[in-house]
Amino acid sequence: MQHAFAARDDRPWAFFTNDEARWMAAVVDVFIPQDEFPAASQAGVVDFIDYQMATAYGAGKGLYLEPPFPDGAVAEQGYQLEFTPAQLLRQGIEQARQLGDFATMDATARADHVEDLSNRDDFIGTLIAELWKLTRQGYFADPIYLGNHDYAGWRMVGFPGAHAYYTERVDEHERSVTPPPRGIAHDRGGSPYPPRAIRGGSD
């Protein structure tokens, strides 16, 4: 642990630039907007994706990237781009930002714009599909990965987490309340790191 004030310091992004993070926040909050439960960015989804991109998954762990990359793939053959996830996000965000400026859009326009991007038949479409997958992972993964802050996702559905022992309860069909969530690290909020502030705001 760092000194007592470290958590208050403005933690820099590990992978994103501030502009990228702002764009990311707008997209992930279209996927999971705020209601009685936090929006994706409020639950740390941008922090989660930033961390994933800076570590093994972003660098292409578990991804076979040997050439060639011929044209003509059918969708059922799966991912056929030559980019690691980190490369896909960096280049994809740069191009996608040319196609629209979230800062000028209201919530409805943002949702429509993300929908349009997702329907594209190029790698922007693949980027949006990847971000949707990462968003759900960030909202619902154990908080040790910096998303699901304060168990936002687990509280929303009623998932008790990693400490699981139900032998005596599974066939009691009129049962008690769901236990409160507890993650791998035991912490009350699952992780000592709150989501970073998105500079300039996502809204």
């Binding site: 578990g62 991804l63 076979y64 154990d142 040790i144 990693a162 400490h163 507890r182 993650g183």
Partner: peptide, 30 residues
């Protein structure tokens, strides 16, 4: 051992116990 093994991201979605496709995979067509 639990709780560390109960990490959905690591094992169910990052396939930590599975074959590494960088070493061995296959090609597919219909």
């Amino acid at each position: 051992g639990a709780p560390e093994e109960h990490d959905e991201l690591k094992y169910a979605h990052r396939y930590e116990h599975m074959v590494d496709v960088k070493k061995e995979t296959l090609t597919f067509r219909h």
